[in-house]
């Protein structure tokens, strides 16, 4: 009895701890400036206002940021998934000499071991050289480069779980390697594919650092940059910032709800036995 009391007590504490910033974010986005700094703090504003949202949509042009974000995140995910899945399959299946499978895979992963910021200056120089600064294309390339190792590593794990006999059977039955991959392996690896794409999508949706450096104008800037742009030289527009934050979070939340089933299945992948 006491034990379960403590269990729930701690669970409530942790939930509150995690949830508080989000609650505060949502409530602030509906407050008028006076309520924002009221002491004691007001959690549920008496007269909720939609002013901040209106400003965002009609004056600050947040739609453009959202559009940029969607295009960049979706393109990055598609590109990383296609290239990464094929690479992962090769690394999982083909026996390369000198234990290259393991070495290459590790090398791929190792590109994620240094902090991203160390690549930003050379990346900036390269993007300028190719005239890709302030373009969505530039961001997609940068994000894909950064997401690929993750996709390769994750999908390789999924593929290695699938018994090799399955595509061998398919190849004997009349498939080529490629059509066996498409018709047998990909459908079986679907949960993994979905899980990986979700992670990639969220990662590129939330990315801030590269976007800040590589896209300074509104032509390519993504939502996180839009949120940050509410911090101006003279003031911090708390209300608009919160409202933009809510918009960013809500989209990911909706997406997560939709694919939740696959996400869980992707995590617990490995129940496949021939």
């Amino acid at each position: 009895m006491l034990k379960s009391f403590f269990k729930y007590f701690f669970m409530v504490i942790i939930t509150m701890f995690v949830f508080f910033p989000i609650v505060w974010l949502v409530s602030t986005s509906f407050k008028n400036p006076v309520d924002m700094f009221a002491v004691p703090p007001i959690f549920v504003p008496a007269n909720p206002s939609f002013d901040h949202y209106a400003t965002l949509f009609f004056e600050a042009g947040i739609v453009k940021y959202i559009l940029n974000s969607v295009i960049v995140a979706v393109s990055t995910t598609l590109l990383s998934l296609v290239a990464g899945t094929l690479a992962a399959y090769s690394l999982a299946r083909f026996r390369l000499p000198y234990r290259m499978n393991e070495r290459l895979s590790f090398w791929v992963l190792s590109t994620r071991m240094f902090p991203p910021i160390v690549t930003i200056i050379p990346l900036f120089a390269m993007m300028r050289f190719f005239h890709l600064l302030n373009t969505r294309m530039g961001l997609v390339i940068a994000y894909t480069a950064f997401n690929l190792p993750f996709v390769v590593w994750m999908m390789r794990g999924f593929f290695m779980e699938i018994p090799e006999e399955l595509e061998e059977a398919a190849m004997v039955d009349g498939d080529s390697r490629m059509s066996a991959f498409r018709r047998i392996i990909l459908p079986i690896a679907k949960p993994g594919l979905v899980a990986t794409s979700i992670f990639t999508l969220i990662l590129s949706w939330n990315e801030f650092l590269f976007a800040l450096i590589l896209s300074q104008t509104r032509s390519a800037a993504t939502l996180p940059i839009g949120v940050a742009s509410t911090v101006t030289q003279y003031e911090i527009k708390w209300g608009e910032m919160s409202a933009a934050g809510v918009i960013a979070v809500v989209r990911v939340l909706i997406f997560a709800f939709v694919v939740q089933k696959h996400l869980v299945r992707g995590m617990s992948f490995g129940a496949i036995k021939g």
Partner: peptide, 20 residues
């Protein structure tokens, strides 16, 4: 010749049935 052009059939130890 790749397996598909050899007109052979094979039964595997773990059956290799397509789970989906």
């Amino acid at each position: 010749l790749p397996p598909r052009h050899r007109n052979i059939a094979m039964v595997f130890q773990n059956y290799a049935l397509y789970p989906h």
